[in-house]
C-alpha cells in the first residue's frame, strides 16, 4: 500500500534461522510515521521474527538476513557494524519484549537509565530528569516516584512492563517495536498499556505484534496479516477487519484457525 510519510521500510526482507528455516520470507513493507501498525497472524507465522529482525536482535539467535531495512535517513539496518548497531538500538529503535524484563539487582532508577549508557555524552545531572520524563510518559511516575531506589524486580507485572516501555523511550527513539507487550499481563494492566500506546503514537512510530485481534482494532491505524512467513495483506485496520481482500485473512479474522 502507498504511504506518504514513511518512518522505516523493508525491502524483500528475509530472516533465516541457522537450521535453515525461513522465519519470514521476502517481506516488503513500509511503515507510516507516527502511527500504530499492528502485525497479526497465527502463532509461528514469523511476525515476531520479523520484528526481531528489524533491530537485528535475531543476531542473538544466529540468524542470517537477506534484503534490507531502510530507515528514514537512508541507513540500512542490515549493513551496520556492531558499533553503529548499538547506537541505533539505543537511540533510534526502542524494543519491548513479550515478558517484562527488569534487570536483576538494579533499582528502578538504574534500570530505566540503562539506555543512557549507550550514548557518547557523559550523563551527568540530567539522568534524574530524563528518567522522570520517561516514567511520566509511561504513566508510571505517580506509582513509583517515592521509591525510585527500590529494586525494579519488586514491581508488579504490569508495572514492570510499563517500566520496560519507559526504558525503551528514554532516549526518544523514532521507532518503538512492541513484541506482544500485553500477552503476560492482566486485563487492567493491558488497558493501561494500550492507552499508553495510543498516547505515545503522537511522537513515535509504533509497531505492535499481537495475537489479539481486538487489541489490533483498538490501537492500530494499519494492520498487516502474516501467514507462514509471508505478508498476505496490509491495509487500514478498518479495511482488513471489515472487508478483507484475501480469503486467508478473512478466515483468520472470523476465527477459522488461530
Amino acid at each position: 500500500m502507498k504511504i506518504e510519510n514513511k518512518a522505516i521500510e523493508t525491502f524483500d526482507f528475509s530472516v533465516k534461522y541457522p537450521n535453515g528455516v525461513l522465519g519470514c520470507d521476502s517481506i516488503s513493507m513500509p511503515f507510516a510515521a507516527n502511527e500504530v501498525t499492528a502485525i497479526i497472524g497465527p502463532s509461528g507465522c514469523g511476525k515476531s521474527t520479523f520484528l526481531k529482525g528489524m533491530n537485528r536482535l535475531s543476531d542473538e539467535f544466529n540468524c542470517t538476513y537477506q534484503g534490507s531495512v531502510i530507515m528514514k535517513n537512508g541507513t540500512d539496518v542490515m549493513n551496520l557494524d556492531p558499533y553503529e548497531l548499538c547506537l541505533l538500538r539505543g537511540n533510534k529503535i526502542g524494543y519491548v519484549m513479550q515478558k517484562p524484563v527488569p534487570f536483576s539487582g538494579k533499582t528502578i532508577l538504574q534500570d530505566v537509565s540503562m539506555p543512557l549508557r549507550a550514548n557518547m555524552e557523559p550523563d551527568g545531572g540530567n539522568v534524574y530528569d530524563k528518567v522522570k520524563s520517561a516514567l511520566e510518559k509511561a504513566a508510571l511516575w505517580d506509582e513509583v516516584h517515592d521509591r525510585l531506589n527500590d529494586l525494579s524486580t519488586s514491581l508488579s507485572g504490569g508495572q514492570q512492563q510499563r517500566l520496560c516501555i519507559a526504558r525503551a523511550i528514554i532516549n526518544a527513539p523514532e521507532i518503538l517495536l512492541l513484541d506482544e507487550p500485553c500477552s503476560s499481563l492482566d486485563p487492567k494492566s493491558t488497558q493501561l498499556v494500550e492507552n499508553l500506546i495510543l498516547e505515545l503514537a503522537s511522537d513515535h512510530t509504533i509497531m505492535i505484534v499481537t495475537h489479539n485481534m481486538q487489541q489490533a482494532q483498538r490501537v492500530a491505524q494499519r494492520t498487516a496479516f502474516f501467514y507462514e512467513g509471508k505478508l498476505i495483506e496490509y491495509d487500514f485496520t478498518n479495511a482488513i477487519f471489515n472487508n478483507p481482500s484475501d480469503e486467508l485473512t478473512g478466515d483468520y479474522i472470523v476465527g477459522k484457525f488461530s
Binding site: R89, G94, M114
Partner: peptide, 23 residues
C-alpha cells in the same frame, strides 16, 4: 544468566563489555 536480560540489554544499545560490567 537469564538470556532475556541480555537481549533486553542489547535492545538498550549496550555493548558486550557494558553488559558484562554493568549487568
Amino acid at each position: 544468566y537469564p538470556k532475556e536480560q541480555i537481549h533486553a540489554a542489547k535492545c538498550c544499545g549496550l555493548f558486550d563489555y557494558q553488559i558484562i560490567t554493568s549487568i
